[in-house]
Design a protein around this nucleic acid. Structure first.
Lengths: 133, 133
DNA sequence: GGGTTGTATCGATGTTCTTCAATGCAACAT
DNA sequence: ATGTTGCATTGAAGAACATCGATACAACCC
């Protein structure tokens, strides 16, 4: 119950590090892999689970602390945790009776990099758009 | 700001700027708003559309350049563009016969910030996890 | 005006997702 | 061994989504 199939986005570094979403058109295979991760983040319950796990001081959270924080059944929480794990965002380990989850910061770092545009690449913003006013 | 209904995530700055996903548990309302944006990114077609728009030199793309790049019907592409626009990721304007889309970097910047953990906050990584090996 | 082209909207359809109750499995307690 | 507790898996029901063809609307051309 540990290392998942998170081969996701592994080839980015081979290209020279972080081709990014904003600098060049994504090819089809990359977009499929990346969409899986964003889809995992595209649910309010999973976002709250992830933030509860990531912001935990000790770096890990017992499922027994997560489940009662929601108005959902235990199998539903377990299902959402599984999706986050399959996306490579978290991992878990059983220790005795309890199972502990923790963040895999590699993935969130990679997403942050993908969403960050290179300095100096400011868009011309054709029409009356979002400057800052 | 612009002309959309992107009240999304607007209250973050009021709290002091970017509480982040990784530093404190997200409250329910924030998670719902944020999930809408990530859900918009959770589809390969929309990711490719966004990257084609964002990486365009002039800063904007004509729909007539986007549609033929996919093996999908024109209404389907139009639908995906609408979802990206409703998420606050892009905006558009009609100029004569054609419609042009461009990136709203405020939203991608905000997502990048949300996924970036404060420097120095390194997790203990309790067990033998997915380092690389 | 009438015809043509570019894009958005509408309805319908098949697929995927969220959720639950029921059940299974692992570890502990007695 | 037997019962109990914590968590995962299974199977099913309803909601949400992606996609299409048909159609509507906007702007241009003649």
């Amino acid at each position: 119950m540990s290392k998942q199939e998170l081969a996701v986005l592994g080839q980015d570094d081979a290209d020279g590090c972080c081709p990014g979403l904003l600098t060049a058109p994504l090819d089809e295979a990359q977009s499929i892999e990346l969409a899986k991760v964003f889809k995992a983040l595209g649910d309010p319950i999973r976002l709250r689970l992830l933030s509860m796990i990531a912001s935990r001081a000790g770096g890990e959270v017992c499922v027994c602390d997560l489940t009662p924080a929601f108005d959902l059944s235990q199998p539903t929480i377990s299902h959402h945790l599984k999706l986050l794990r399959q996306a490579g965002l978290i991992d878990c380990e059983r220790r005795g009776t309890w199972v502990y989850y923790w963040l895999l910061p590699e993935m969130t770092d990679r997403l942050a990099g993908i969403l960050t545009r290179p300095a100096g690449q400011l868009l011309p913003e054709p029409a009356g758009t979002a400057g800052d006013a």
